[in-house]
Design a protein around this nucleic acid. Structure first.
Length: 429
RNA sequence: GGAGAGAUGACCGAGCGGUUUAAGGUGCACGCCUGGAAAGCGUGUGUACUCCAAAAGGGUACCGAGGGUUCGAAUCCCUCUCUCUCCGCCA
C-alpha cells in the first residue's frame, strides 16, 4: 500500500512512477475520496468534541444535583447528525482504503525501464558467459525423462486430482525431498536463516497484508466452509509473522527460511506450460523472507538474491540473474531479481526464483513497524522475500541437466547425502 | 463438537454507567542525591488520524473485533475471534 501523504503531496510524481509499470493509474478519484473523507472527519470531530464536553458537564451537574435539561436538549439536536456523520465517515474511509489497496508498489529508481519481460536486464551468468554447451546427444524434456524413469506420473496426478497435478514416485519423491532438505540446511546452517514451518492455510488479513487480496483472489484456492485460503507461497504466512507488531530495532534484520507446498489456481495461465512440472496447481518451494530496517533493505535484496543463487551453484546448475524491468514487476515489488535456470530439454532459461524488495508496501498493509533504539520513534519496517528456490522446477532442472545419453540421471553431489546412497537413477528394465 | 472462564497501556493489575484526562505497581528515560553505584525522591512515558505554513499547542479515535442501548460505555446487551480449563473425538 502506498503512502497517502506522499500521494497528496506529490501526486504527479507518484503517477509517473506508477505509469512506468506500463499502464496508467488515475489518482484523481482516490484524491477526491480522501479530500471528502478529511472534510467529513473534521466535521465529525467537532461534533464529537462538543458531545464529549456536554457529557462531562451533565455528569458534573448531576453529581451536584443540578439541572442538565438545557444541555440534554442541545444533545438531542446534535445526536442524530453525529450518528449520520460517523456512518458517512466510516463508509468513506473504507472507500479510500479500497482505492488505495488496488494500487501497486512504486518501482525503485534503480529498476530498468521497460514494458515487458523482453526488457529485463541480465545481471550475471553462472558458470560463465554464453549459453551452456549442448549435450553430445539429443536432450530430452523432463517429462519424457521422468516418465521413462517411472518417477513422474502425470496420469496418476490427473486421476486423483486433475490437470496440473502430478504424482512423484519412488526416487522422484525422494529427490524432491532431498532438494527440500538440502535447501533448508544450506540456508539455515550456512546463511543464517531461522527455519519456520508455517500453516498452509491463512486468513484474509494475512493475504491482504502481503498484497494477494483484494486484487488476486481468483488465483487462490478458497475453502468452502471456512474463511481460509491455501497459501500461494510461504511469503504469506512468514511475512505476516510481524503483522501488527512493533519490533525493537535490535531484533532486525530477521531472516526466515520456510519450506511449504504452494497452491495456485493458475486462472490466467490456460494453455501455458500444460506439459510437465513447470506450472502446477501444487508445488513445493523453499522461501526466504527478510524483515529489515528501512535503510538496509536494498543491501538485503542483494544478499537474499545471492543466497538463492547459491542453491543453484551448489547443485551446479547453469543459471542467470535478471533485473525485472518496470513493466514486469509484481504488484507488491519495488525491485525484483529473477533467477533463471538453464533447461537443456527446452534450450532456454526458465524462472526458478523471484527475489523482491517490497520496501514498506507490505509493512503498511500489515501495520508492521520498527521502534528505533535511539529516538524510540516507530516507523514502518521493510520486507523482502525470494524463492530459495522453487523445488519442482529445480527437480526439472536436475533431470534435464543431469540426464545421460542412456536415459539415466546422475544425482548432483550436493544431494547425495540426502539420497540414501543413490547416485544415479536408471531406467527400469 | 459440548460446558465454563477470560481478553484492559511495554508488562502485571484495578476499574463493572458520569470526579477515568484508564488507579496502583513494574519496567524504561531524564533529573536530584552519591567519590561511583544501589536505594530514595521528583518528572516523564502508547498508537493512528487530523487542525495549524511549521514548531509550540489543540482535537478525535483506540480498554480483543464489529454492531447496539444511552444525553454519556472499558463498564450494559448482541454477534464474532482468540486464549485457558474440563468433557468428547482424533493424527
Amino acid at each position: 500500500m502506498l503512502d497517502l501523504k506522499k500521494i497528496r503531496e506529490n501526486p504527479q510524481w507518484v503517477e509517473e512512477r506508477l505509469a512506468s509499470r506500463g499502464r496508467g493509474y488515475d489518482l484523481q478519484r482516490l484524491q477526491a475520496l480522501e479530500h471528502d473523507k478529511r472534510a467529513l472527519q473534521s466535521e465529525t470531530e467537532i461534533l464529537q468534541a462538543r458531545r464529549n464536553a456536554i457529557s462531562r458537564e451533565v455528569g458534573q451537574l448531576k453529581g451536584q444535583g443540578g439541572d442538565a435539561s438545557a444541555l440534554l436538549v442541545e444533545m438531542q439536536g446534535l445526536g442524530p447528525r453525529l450518528k449520520e456523520l460517523e456512518q458517512l465517515l466510516r463508509v468513506k474511509e473504507e472507500e479510500v482504503l479500497a482505492a488505495l489497496s488496488e494500487l501497486p508498489n512504486l518501482p525503485d529508481e534503480t529498476v530498468p525501464p521497460g514494458k515487458d519481460e523482453k526488457e529485463n536486464v541480465e545481471q550475471r551468468r553462472w558458470p560463465g558467459v554464453g549459453d551452456p554447451a549442448a549435450k553430445p546427444f539429443t536432450a530430452l524434456n523432463h517429462w519424457d525423462i521422468g516418465e521413462r524413469l517411472g518417477i513422474l506420473d502425470f496420469n496418476a496426478g490427473a486421476l486423483v486430482a486433475g490437470a496440473r497435478f502430478t504424482v512423484l514416485r519412488g526416487l522422484g519423491a525422494r529427490l524432491n525431498r532431498a532438494l527440500i532438505q538440502f535447501m533448508l540446511d544450506l540456508h539455515s546452517d550456512e546463511h543464517g536463516y531461522t527455519e519456520v514451518m508455517p500453516p498452509f492455510l491463512v486468513n484474509r488479513e494475512s493475504l491482504f497484508g502481503t498484497g494477494q487480496l483484494p486484487k488476486f483472489e481468483e488465483e487462490l484456492f478458497a475453502q468452502r466452509d471456512d474463511p481460509l485460503f491455501l497459501i500461494p507461497t510461504a511469503e504469506v504466512p512468514v511475512t505476516n509473522l510481524v503483522r501488527g507488531e512493533i519490533v525493537e530495532e535490535e531484533l532486525l534484520p530477521m531472516k526466515f527460511v520456510a519450506w511449504t507446498s504452494c497452491f495456485r489456481r493458475e486462472a490466467g495461465a490456460a494453455g501455458r506450460d500444460t506439459r510437465g512440472l513447470i506450472r502446477q496447481h501444487q508445488f513445493d518451494k523453499v522461501e526466504l523472507v527478510w524483515i529489515t530496517r528501512p535503510e538496509e533493505s536494498n543491501a538485503a535484496l542483494e544478499q537474499l538474491t545471492r543466497d538463492a543463487e547459491q542453491v543453484l551453484q551448489r547443485l551446479e546448475l547453469p543459471h542467470r540473474t535478471v533485473a525485472l524491468c518496470t513493466g514486469d514487476l509484481g504488484f507488491a515489488a519495488r525491485k525484483t531479481y529473477d533467477l533463471e535456470v538453464w533447461l537443456p530439454g527446452q534450450g532456454c532459461y526458465r524462472e526458478i526464483s523471484s527475489c523482491s524488495n517490497t520496501g514498506d508496501f507490505q509493512a503498511r498493509r500489515m501495520q508492521a513497524r520498527v521502534r528505533r533504539k535511539e529516538s524510540r520513534k516507530v516507523e514502518l519496517l521493510h520486507t523482502l522475500n525470494g524463492s530459495g528456490i522453487a523445488v519442482g522446477r529445480t527437480l526439472v532442472a536436475v533431470l534435464e541437466n543431469y540426464q545421460q545419453a542412456d536415459g539415466s540421471v546422475v544425482i548432483p553431489d550436493a544431494l547425495r547425502p540426502y539420497m540414501g546412497g543413490v547416485d544415479i537413477i536408471r531406467p527400469k528394465g
